[in-house]
Measured scan of single mutants.
Amino acid sequence: TTEYTFTDDEEARRAIEELKKRGLTFRYEKHGTTWRVRVD
């Protein structure tokens, strides 16, 4: 499991789109302004 942290909404959304394109399994949660994206 790899975890990424983003504080920029645009950056987080781009990363999420990219992961979807690659067909990877991931989860994300947003805490205030911080996004945590975990890739299995």
Rank of each mutant, 00 (worst) to 15 (best):
T1I: 14
T1E: 10
T2H: 12
T2D: 05
T2R: 13
T2V: 14
E3D: 06
E3Q: 06
E3C: 12
E3F: 14
T5F: 14
T5D: 04
T5K: 05
F6Y: 10
F6E: 00
F6D: 00
T7C: 05
T7H: 12
T7V: 07
T7G: 05
T7F: 13
T7N: 11
D8G: 05
D8T: 13
D9T: 05
D9E: 14
D9V: 10
D9W: 15
D9M: 07
D9L: 08
E10H: 10
E10L: 10
E10Q: 10
E10S: 08
E11L: 08
E11F: 04
E11I: 07
E11K: 07
E11M: 09
E11H: 08
A12Y: 06
A12N: 01
R13D: 04
R13F: 13
R14V: 09
R14E: 08
R14T: 08
A15K: 10
A15W: 15
A15C: 15
I16S: 01
I16M: 13
E17R: 12
E17G: 07
E17A: 12
E17Y: 10
E17N: 10
E17F: 09
E18M: 11
E18H: 09
E18T: 08
L19E: 00
L19Y: 06
L19G: 01
L19S: 01
L19T: 01
L19F: 14
L19Q: 00
K20E: 11
K20A: 09
K20I: 14
K21L: 10
K21C: 11
K21W: 06
R22C: 08
R22T: 08
R22P: 01
R22M: 13
R22F: 06
R22A: 13
R22V: 06
G23L: 03
L24F: 12
L24Q: 06
L24S: 05
L24M: 09
L24I: 12
L24N: 04
T25P: 09
F26Y: 08
F26H: 03
F26M: 04
F26I: 12
R27S: 15
R27L: 08
R27Y: 14
R27N: 09
Y28V: 15
Y28E: 03
Y28W: 13
Y28D: 02
E29F: 13
E29T: 11
E29W: 15
E29C: 13
K30E: 02
K30S: 03
K30W: 04
K30L: 06
H31P: 01
H31V: 14
H31D: 14
H31N: 13
H31K: 11
G32T: 02
G32F: 03
T33W: 04
T34E: 12
W35G: 01
W35T: 06
W35D: 01
W35N: 02
W35M: 03
W35L: 04
R36N: 07
R36L: 15
R36G: 02
R36K: 14
R36S: 10
V37M: 03
V37R: 00
V37L: 08
V37I: 15
V37S: 00
R38W: 15
R38D: 05
R38T: 15
R38Y: 15
R38P: 01
R38A: 11
R38K: 12
V39G: 01
V39Y: 03
V39E: 02
D40G: 11
D40K: 08
D40H: 12
D40M: 14
